[in-house]
Design a protein around this nucleic acid. Structure first.
Lengths: 110, 110
DNA sequence: TCCATGCATGATTATATTTAGATATTGAGA
DNA sequence: TCTCAATATCTAAATATAATCATGCATGGA
């Protein structure tokens, strides 16, 4: 694996490894919007949201443009949502396995 | 989004957000192996590798079992590789876009 | 039983990340 | 021009993460 690609992959996964940033992307999935809409959606300080938006920008996941006083954000490439969905699939599979194990434990106890 | 799922997703992405851990998974992709094979592959201290393996274990990405003195690791669910591949796709798309922008810049300059 | 091997765990230090508050910047309107 | 609104950036403190070194633990062989 090329070192530069590896680094980019770490940056990408790292950008997705925070609840606030995942919430921001969840909001942007419904369409682009301004920061003033993101702030109440994620429920955090303005400066904190701005900081996390910068991390998503640096990871090339979102881009912004000014519209008067507001700054509007949008996801650059929706493929990112496929990535997130794949993560969901991993988690769901994991949960299914856990449930099966619990069921078998329960069977053995009865 | 349910808070528990969100947390699991963060744990998953976080586990993938480190070059050493991605290298470990790259190794395990070729089949399960013992720690003594992983250490030279990733090129780091034994204790450090062990710590990172623990992070992958806690994220439910890999599991281990003893075989005599050795401990063998394997990926629990290969779906994780689809996730990683999807990340690659995101990065490649990003690189393609960057290249296009550079080409257009070059055109304008000439 | 004693020792060596393979690995995990704990402690420590250095570094990075997160958060909140303060300040700076940009644009719109009075 | 002055002021306000929306957002970014800076700073400091708290917390988390990473790497290394030391130690502990289980297993197999002498």
């Amino acid at each position: 694996m090329e070192e530069a690609i590896l680094k980019k992959k770490v940056t990408l996964f790292n950008a997705l490894a925070h609840p606030l940033r995942l919430k921001i992307l969840l909001k942007l999935r419904r369409g682009s919007c301004c920061v003033c809409e993101i702030i109440p959606f994620v429920g955090s300080e303005q400066s904190n949201v701005s900081h996390h938006l910068a991390i998503l920008r640096n990871a090339n996941i979102v881009r912004s443009k000014k519209r008067g006083l507001e700054v509007w954000y949008e996801v650059i490439d929706p493929v990112i949502f496929e990535l997130i969905d794949r993560a969901d699939a991993c988690i769901m599979e994991d949960l299914r396995t856990s449930r099966k194990m619990l069921e078998e434990l329960a069977k053995q106890e009865s």
